[in-house]
């Protein structure tokens, strides 16, 4: 409680002066700046399907709220960068409380080595998090890549060159988003970016919890790619292969007998710009998790096997409508073995 109150105060005091619009607080000639930014989004998952709900939602019901707000400041002083970002989000994932919670999403300082290379230290995205859905045009992100996401105690390097972008990060004693210890995490990406075709390859390695949690070692290979077919039509591909060690036995507080589970996922998506305000987006998706596979030697028979079997395929069709520069209305319908019938959202940026 104490922590929440303290943050609420911090939020209030920095939020009041610039409640309704994004603002550049200052932008000096020497390049130093301080920006305040944020977004407010309201919407959620409609018609969630218990048969196809793998680990998406804390509860299966007609509407699972996914509302979200974020507020952050980012700035630069000389070659030093800094950023603080607060998220107010609903813990609607499996095992979550279903309640809103405030947490600090980013808290780092950085240093610009050159104009196009910099490092960050603190609580930030791991490197590959920036590109883990590069080939996925859907608003709600279709297939989760499963990389580490935000991590504390992270050091990250990123570089952007004419056609090349690279990044790498190391996180000390990483955690799952549910707070469970996972061990040290490194990941990296490298990509080629042009107007016609771009792709990025990401890698992640996880040290494992050494018996402290169910998470053991992990390796992940991800790929994202975009191709501009017509001026108004882009297609994208996003996919991953993951080997994740999970404990299959527990004695008291000690997890053991970690076995490797092989997971795959892929999204093929397309985005068509109908006009400046309207985008139409479609996707076809495939996921295969070994712990869904009843034939797997390590299948956990404590629960009945998923209705969809060892893999899941679904498609989506939706649109993003931008009535203004900083507002997006998104509706996406899903067919096939999808965990929900539709996703609808309004998001405003400032």
């Amino acid at each position: 409680m104490l922590r929440k109150t303290t943050i609420a105060l911090a939020l209030s005091s920095s939020f009041l002066p610039c409640l309704v619009q994004a603002a550049t607080i200052y932008d000096k000639d020497n390049g130093d700046y301080l920006n305040l930014y944020g977004e407010v989004g309201v919407g959620g998952h409609i018609g969630t399907n218990s048969d196809y709900n793998h680990d998406e939602f804390y509860d299966t019901k007609s509407y699972v709220d996914d509302s979200f707000a974020t507020l952050g400041i980012a700035g630069q002083e000389s070659k030093f960068l800094y950023r603080l970002e607060l998220d107010y989000q609903r813990e609607n994932w499996l095992g979550g409380s279903g309640e809103f919670a405030l947490d600090i999403d980013k808290l780092y300082v950085g240093y610009a080595i050159t104009e196009n290379q910099w490092i960050e230290l603190g609580l930030t995205d791991t490197a590959f998090d920036d590109y883990d859905h590069y080939g996925d045009f859907t608003f709600n992100k279709a297939v989760e890549t499963g990389e580490a996401g935000d991590q504390e105690n992270t050091i990250k390097y990123q570089g952007e060159f004419e056609y090349i972008r690279v990044g790498a990060s190391y996180s000390y004693e990483g955690e799952h988003k549910n707070g469970t210890f996972q061990g040290d995490i490194v990941n990296a990406y490298a990509g080629v970016f042009t107007d016609i075709f771009s792709f990025v390859v990401g890698l992640e390695g996880r040290g494992g919890s050494d018996g402290i949690s169910k998470y053991g070692e992990q390796q992940l290979l991800g790929l994202g790619a975009r191709l501009t077919v017509l001026p108004d039509l882009q297609i994208g591909f996003n996919g991953f292969i993951e080997d994740e060690d999970m404990a299959t036995h527990r004695s008291g507080d000690t997890y053991m007998e970690y076995e490797t589970f092989r997971n795959y996922g892929a999204t093929l998506s397309a985005k068509y710009d109908w006009n400046e305000a309207l985008e139409i987006i479609a996707s076809a998706n495939y996921e295969e998790y070994e712990n869904w596979d009843i034939e797997s030697p390590n299948y956990d028979y404590e629960e009945l096997p998923p209705v969809f079997g060892k893999e899941r395929t679904w498609g989506s069709l939706g649109f993003n409508y931008r009535p203004g520069q900083n507002i997006v209305l998104s509706v996406e319908g899903r067919v096939g073995e999808a965990p929900e019938a539709a996703y609808a959202y309004v998001r405003m940026y400032f």
Partner: peptide, 25 residues
């Protein structure tokens, strides 16, 4: 309580980098 059986990882940074070096996913 059973002692951990060393299958749960925690290989350290060097090992992680080796993993990342694609010792064959």
């Amino acid at each position: 309580t059973e002692p951990h059986d060393s299958t749960g990882g925690a290989t350290g940074l060097f090992g992680l980098l080796t993993l990342l070096g694609l010792t064959g996913l």
